[in-house]
Simulated assay, not measured.
Amino acid sequence: MKLVASDIDGTILAHNGKISPRTIAAFQACVAAGVEVVFVTGRPPRWLAPVREQLGHLGTVICSNGALVYDLATEQVVSSQCIAIPDVLAARAAIKQLVPSASFAAETLEGLYLEEDFIGENAPEALKQIEARPLAESLRAECGVVKFLAKVQNSTADEFLAKVRPVVSPWVDATHSAPDVALLEMSLRGVNKAATLSQFAASKGISASQVVAFGDMPNDIQMLSWSGRGYAMASGHPEAKQAANLLAPGIEDDGVAQVLEQLLLEAV
Rank of each mutant, 00 (worst) to 15 (best):
N16G: 04
V164T: 07
V164D: 03
M217C: 11
S209G: 10
S207W: 12
E159M: 02
D71F: 06
L98Q: 13
G250L: 07
H15K: 08
E266I: 09
L265Q: 14
K147S: 05
D87Q: 02
A49P: 00
S203V: 08
F27A: 07
I62K: 12
D254R: 01
E115L: 13
M223Y: 13
Q81C: 04
A232K: 06
V172A: 07
Q199T: 14
H57D: 11
H57W: 00
L139F: 03
R46G: 10
K151Q: 11
R140V: 10
I221W: 11
V168K: 01
I85G: 11
G59V: 09
G230H: 02
I85F: 11
I83M: 03
R189K: 13
L260I: 13
G56P: 06
L188N: 01
D71I: 12
G66D: 06
Y70C: 10
L265T: 12
L263V: 02
K147I: 06
D254P: 03
K2N: 15
A73R: 12
D254S: 00
S203M: 08
S20I: 01
I206M: 12
T156A: 01
I8T: 09
S103H: 13
G228A: 14
G190L: 00
D216P: 03
I12L: 03
T74G: 09
T156Y: 01
G10T: 03
L265P: 12
Q262T: 10
